[in-house]
Nucleic acid binder design. Structure first.
Lengths: 214, 214
DNA sequence: GACTATACGGAATCCGAATTCCGTTTGCGT
DNA sequence: ACGCAAACGGAATTCGGATTCCGTATAGTC
């Protein structure tokens, strides 16, 4: 979408990264994506290295530690999400666009246990935090649009979205055996119905001193 | 299979447990509750021991390992929940009763980060599994009652409840800094609205080969 | 009060990763 | 080709915690 550097996060310094280095970094990122997807945050650095076809040392050359590696992945995810959100903003029916966006994002999470589980379980750090705020801005616009169209209940705030996403991620990412076929599709639809206008229950005011319900 | 009570007395029957032992076991359980609440599953056995005012060895005398300890706690939680559910079954308005039950349970989880986070993240084992199935039975009754009364959408199944609970637990238990005042109260109300009759969207059929939507 | 099966405490042990180190290899400018 | 800084690999080191061991203390019993 954007002509900006897609998958070449760090290395912002002027140093022109050697060719093989760039290749490896990419491989590590991809392997990490797979491993996190498969085993969650508890996957092992050695495994990531092996899958990427490099030594652990190399992994550490590119990312100071496990968390940083994860961070790069999360950032990328937020970026993809932001792109989609921007697209959604252009569609005619904002509510339908919103629902589709949620469904898409849910599927994304369902396919990626690892990233999902981290989403709600630790404060974002570094790049990822910035990426998120951009996403929030877009989401806000989409929501207001849907509300103006009278299709989304008025008492929802942007802040509610991460909450929903967080709940969703728990469901999509739930341990295999933990419950009989955890059905996030149904969960999501119920939630969307609950967000549809008009709201039946009056939502409790947010606790934080952060924003008012408008 | 002789009733051999060799080295690790499995809390079952037979030997009437010495007085001080009973006291300690109780202390450990309580301390564990606090520690799990406070630090989630990553709390330390040594801390639990210290808080309980005993040595680690003692903790291990009563529970073979960390997971077993957690399990005891989870079981207790399910039992309490089951009690409440049974009560809810007796109330006049089943939908209201259901909502209250959910709110109560949510609050319970909000107060107890540790147990919540475990709920969705690992298959239940031992006693806890049994305790859960009892709870499910009760819930099923309550749901049907609410549906018969035309207050809950008909296409919900008992299996959806754990899913909701799981989502909820992620939200209530989200890491402090992870999002600005994660507001589970709002999340819950939205969800409840989505469960209210009549459902607007058609819920996707469950994937598992487990049950039909009735 | 003495005896013994139970319990206890907590230092020592074990273990599974993350992270570090350093000798070797390789891209690439000259 | 040549040289060297940038990269690499992966064994060695560290570290945080769970679990085990075993000598000591105590409840319960006669």
């Amino acid at each position: 979408m954007t002509p900006t550097t897609k998958t070449t996060p760090p290395r912002k310094s002027g140093a022109p990264l050697r060719a093989d280095a760039r290749r490896n970094r990419e491989a590590v990122l991809e392997a990490a994506r797979d491993e996190f997807r498969e085993h969650g945050f508890d996957c092992q650095m050695e495994d990531i290295a092996r899958v990427a076809g490099v030594g652990v040392g190399t992994v550490y050359r590119h990312f100071p530690n496990k968390e940083a590696l994860l961070d790069a992945l999360v950032e990328d995810r937020f970026d993809r999400l932001a792109d989609r959100t921007a697209e959604a903003l252009d569609r005619e029916d904002p509510w339908e666009a919103f629902c589709e966006l949620m469904r898409w994002s849910a599927r994304l999470q369902a396919d990626d246990r690892g990233l999902s589980e981290v989403l709600g379980s630790r404060p974002l750090v570094g790049e990822a935090a910035a990426a998120k705020s951009g996403l929030v801005e877009l989401s806000d616009r989409l929501m207001r649009k849907a509300q103006r169209a009278g299709e989304m209940r008025k008492d929802l705030m942007v802040e509610d979205i991460p909450t929903m996403i967080c709940g969703l991620s728990a469901v999509t990412g739930a341990a295999e055996g933990s419950m009989p076929a955890m059905n996030w599709e149904r969960f999501l639809e119920v939630m969307l119905d609950g967000m549809r206008a008009p709201g039946s229950a009056k939502l409790p005011a947010p606790r934080a001193r952060l924003n008012q319900p408008r």
